[in-house]
Design a protein around this nucleic acid. Sequence first.
DNA 1: GCAAGAAATGAATGATGGTTCAATTCTTCT
DNA 2: AGAAGAATTGAACCATCATTCATTTCTTGC
Lengths: 199, 199
Amino acid sequence: MAYRSTERVKARLTASRERIVAAAVGILAEHGYAGCSVAAVAERAGVATGSVYRHFPAKADLFAEVFRTASQREVDAVSRAAARETTAAAKLRAVVETFSGRALQSPRLAYALLAEPVDPAVEAQRLIFRRAHATLIAGYVAAGVASGELPPQDTELTSTAVVGALAEAMVGPLAAGVAGPDTIGGLTTFIHRALGVSP
Amino acid sequence: MAYRSTERVKARLTASRERIVAAAVGILAEHGYAGCSVAAVAERAGVATGSVYRHFPAKADLFAEVFRTASQREVDAVSRAAARETTAAAKLRAVVETFSGRALQSPRLAYALLAEPVDPAVEAQRLIFRRAHATLIAGYVAAGVASGELPPQDTELTSTAVVGALAEAMVGPLAAGVAGPDTIGGLTTFIHRALGVSP
DNA sequence: GCAAGAAATGAATGATGGTTCAATTCTTCT
DNA sequence: AGAAGAATTGAACCATCATTCATTTCTTGC
């Protein structure tokens, strides 16, 4: 045998793979899923179209990872912000503010993650994204219920509804380009009330 | 001139057009948007593929009308149910029950109208569908605020959030095939609280 | 340096499905 | 009945991309 891939090559492979994912996230954030042809992603990553297929068996697999990566970043940000707070009310306020603030900061990406039409295989990842948020929120709600800060409720259902409310309230502004002056405040009140935070 | 289309022919044209729309709604309800190739719609309507284009300049235009038609039906049903009630709380309960009940009755159609990936041109109609619901709800909320039954709020924002919550809470059950035992009750409570219905 | 094999390339392939249009059938009016 | 024109047909066309693969370029160990 005269060739056995070495660490250096493996590192380059990994770097290449990461560049492809990053390129895809970049195009997603700039032009949405519609702009994400495999050729465009490859060009931006500085590789040939065919090379994408050395890392991912199919486009759907690439974008599953892309959505997972981008989603995780969002969920982490929300989670980090909530972790700084102690009461359920404060945690939920942090969730709303972080979620909405970031969405309004990167509207194209937020729209792609939340609502833009994508192939069915990628759609599944979107559901996972939404569920990840819901699960996070369900934890805060459940803790609030346990401590008596919130009334008893089906936390699975209410956290799902919260995610829906947040997403829907964002899609309009994301499309229009601006949110109303107190969109975030209004949403916070809505969600506090919905979950039974006492006034 | 030896030919000038007559009433009878015009009626047939209209009937044909309506059959095409109905066929599309039917396929949408049975197989979702994915099953809605122009050829499939034409076959179900009993016309040739090309004939679809005598009525609609492009597939997107056909489906704009399809979504408009199907959406209107939903909005009307919700509106009718709410009209029977007098208080904001009761109207909102009727909205939740009708919306959810119908969605769970026709899950495939509901999923297509609410969440299934479609071309961007059709997506626009979905936004209109959601806005139509939101506008309807905003009316009930505004009336409730005016009468003092509900606290002051940005009715545009809160009604949008309500639609999001409803839709999101439905997508899971629609995909899974079943709703929890008290999904609708839980949602009603959630929305009553969110809008400030006093307990 | 060179042989063996891995990685990378990008033009060609193929599948999908919307759209067109020449040919055909149907309507109307004289 | 027959001419003029409209409606209908459906197979062919075409555009779009995801995917493939024969060829080229790069790496490694000797």
